[in-house]
Amino acid sequence: MQYSGNMATDPKKRGRAIAPFFVFVLPALIVVGVILAYPVIYALVISLTDRELLYLGKTNFIGLRNYSEMIRDRNFWHSFRLQLGFIAIAIPIELVIGLFVAILFNREFPFSKTLRSLLMLPVFVLPVLSGLTWRLMLQPSYGVLASFFSAISLGPTAWLADTKYAYVAILLQDIWRMWPFMFMIIYAGLSSMPSEYVEAARIDGANFFQRFWYVLLPYLKSVIATAFLLRLIDALRIFSEVYVMTYGGPSNATMLLSLYIHKQAFEFGRLSYAASVAVFLLMVALSISYFVVKRGLRGEIE
């Protein structure tokens, strides 16, 4: 593996290498231990108790009762379904747009570099501001998108007050913000592809779709998989955009998992129950993360 050095393969040298290793790595490990590992363990422990936000009495250990409540909680499953739907709809659309725009940009034309970097702006826009901007654009009567939609009579006047269209709105917001992320990663993969591949296919008489299907896609497979996994983890923890656009409403129509956790903890004061849902989300994120890292390290070796 490329990361680990082999300066100290000789056992005599190894003894010497351990001291500097600790000098360099230990400070970071201590900090990570205190502000990352400890809170994770804390969340685990809290999820096994009946701790409430405003309850000042004794905290009792109640075992897995929070988790069994979670399994029976219809609102939790509702949020879970919304979250899965969000991932299943937004990410493929982002992927397709990103892929085709990357193919479009993968040639020489004037200003291509400038336009490419401008496309990246939405990815870095503050999520809060992005959500607020979409909310402004969707305001009935004075929002620019709302005026447009009502001119072509698409949807209700107040999108964010409608249970179906509010969900569409948060999807649109995410697709707008994140397809350039897919674009950028796929574009990078595409521009590292030797041009002979496509040329050879062209000479063999392959048309655009054949070149796309038999040359480009197989070459991009692993890049796309990585981009997909990164987006997947990102989409799991989406919070601020939705918080400022709809606050989970109307009537829980956009209550994604992270908003549900926030609401349980800080609106209903049910800290321990929120912690158990948080632990669930954490486990899901870490399992996907496991694959991402594994792929990444393998790529490093190859």
Binding site: L36, R237, A278, V279, A285, L286
Partner: peptide, 8 residues
């Protein structure tokens, strides 16, 4: 990759 809300 830990979601912030889990640690909040």
């Amino acid at each position: 990759m830990i979601p912030q809300i889990s640690l909040a």
